[in-house]
Nucleic acid binder design. Sequence first.
DNA 1: GAGTCTGATGAATCCATAC
DNA 2: GGTATGGATTCATCAGACT
Lengths: 366, 366
Amino acid sequence: MTKNTRKEAPVLPLNTIMSGDCIEAMNSLPEGSVDLIFADPPYNLQLRGDLHRPDNSKVDAVDDSWDQFDSFKVYDDFTREWLAAARRLLKPNGAIWVIGSYHNVFRLGAELQNQGYWLLNDVVWRKSNPMPNFRGKRFTNAHETLIWASKNEGAKYTFNYEALKALNEGIQMRSDWVLPICNGGERLKNEDGDKAHPTQKPQSLLHRLLIATTNPGDVVLDPFFGTGTTGAVAKMLGRDYIGIEREEKYRKVAEKRLKSIRKFDSEALKVSTSKRAEPRVPFGQLVERGMLRPGEELSSLNGRHKAKVRADGTLVGNDVKGSIHQVGAHLEGAPSCNGWTYWTYKRDGQNVPIDLLRQQIRAEMN
Amino acid sequence: MTKNTRKEAPVLPLNTIMSGDCIEAMNSLPEGSVDLIFADPPYNLQLRGDLHRPDNSKVDAVDDSWDQFDSFKVYDDFTREWLAAARRLLKPNGAIWVIGSYHNVFRLGAELQNQGYWLLNDVVWRKSNPMPNFRGKRFTNAHETLIWASKNEGAKYTFNYEALKALNEGIQMRSDWVLPICNGGERLKNEDGDKAHPTQKPQSLLHRLLIATTNPGDVVLDPFFGTGTTGAVAKMLGRDYIGIEREEKYRKVAEKRLKSIRKFDSEALKVSTSKRAEPRVPFGQLVERGMLRPGEELSSLNGRHKAKVRADGTLVGNDVKGSIHQVGAHLEGAPSCNGWTYWTYKRDGQNVPIDLLRQQIRAEMN
DNA sequence: GAGTCTGATGAATCCATAC
DNA sequence: GGTATGGATTCATCAGACT
């Protein structure tokens, strides 16, 4: 064995729950190792007593000097730190989801932008059965906001467009999601019958989010794991998870929950894919294989233009030469054109799109 | 008459449109004189190149100079200044609404909090007819966010709870509002037929907002008046307005528009009370919500065919993949098929139509 | 006139790969 | 890394032409 002087990278603790402070825990993991982070951070008010000021003095919940300004300052410092630790962990094409309400989500979103995350969407979780506003002083607070962001501008983030479109019966998925809150049998209870966690998220929310922005085998990290909804859905869907949770009582509930989860069979985890994922077929191959003859005439779908096939797989039409796409774009005066769906050839008196021939070749490849 | 040595307060320019920079204009008005501010500031969209629809037509982007900022810092400085000027203008029990998208709304919300405004709700405007995502790279950006805040914590802001409940057919108004975007006859055009303003807001949105949070006779100020939707609805509803608009071309359109408006125009009521259609439930939601498991087998009602559920809400059966409707139609050799009544799942030894699950979801939504 | 078809358009941070 | 090119991608609504 050759001598290896590089520092050994720490191993990822896949499918386990780490304890302790999430910032320290994240900083102990190797840089650029996680595909997706889902984070449901605590809100402002719940942080009193849990947080330290920037100078490390503990914030006292009953301290009279606590005011609005201190409160935001401390929350922003906390947000900055954990978002930076999260960003370090992400692979270059990784992405993050954060969820919050109007109490904290504006600070989350602004800090994401400040750190160089690139916002992709804000998504509204529209609760189909929210708690009513009993005092009648405001609108029923019937939604929470999720922010989806890539690590950098221009990153090639994962988005399973076709699968989401399928989930929505053929119409592209919108930025507003109507889903019920977590209650009934899904809501975890303690022995005494109280709810095990105050803000347990519904599995349906994580299902949609993980189907949309991860692939089977991806690593999903949740720094505020709670009772482990992220891990549970990740496991069902064949993704690896890493949870971080500082409260032992939540870790215990999550451990038990995760043990009983089974992965769905992998056939069911395959999702609809787009044409982009199909192998590329050069048009010239249709000519080489004799599916189209050199000299044969193609017509545009709208019938307005014609062009002739040449032996090298280019077209000539109306003084223009070039690829099926270039000639189509030129004839239509369009910025671009998909030649596969634009051109047709004649068989048995019918005009058939040449894309049919490409599909034949692709079918043979499988 | 007794001698009055106090400085004469400037008179409020009610029901007029001021020109010039909105910060200077606001600072020229008397402190604590306005009941409500509605502000639709530039969003700071950071658009890169051109965008074409699949039919090759070009999207008319918002690329006006007034939406260009060099950095977040410049945008934040601008936001801080106009929000401070606005806060000075508000009466002690006054309130503000701001609207934005994910590009800017997090910065707006954070700065509102920083200045001591007290957030009351964030309200989601869910557009019933948004522009689609043409490249299939993100979720359809189908909503914008409004933030409603009082001048201070503890202020006695106006909220017409009962009026809102009546507008919503007797049900408490929620924080998500489904309203169409502004198009058709309501959309103001120039002589050449082009839209007069790239981001005209619908009257229905302002109608709901003013009914909810102002009383007749209140003074409503809009520092980014544009073509004057705020003024138009305020006038209809018997509120006084003050508009501020920098661009002469928009002021001219707004002046003309406002002249033709009559108080208590019944048209305004009509647009705001559009009926809700029966909600569409995508089959995928049964999977997300755990009512059916990925991998679970469905049987056709006639018992002749079977298919398996996938995680994205599609079915696989006999080499066919697709929606519940597509797979059903294919297996029956029929041109179409209602998958909801065709497929059944097994519970307690019984075959139950999946439509039962859809009915369950619809019941929860009402 | 009623129904049908075609075209236009809306606050948009909207491509991937090979050379 | 920049450049060139293949080729993938849309929903609701309204106006106006056409049957």
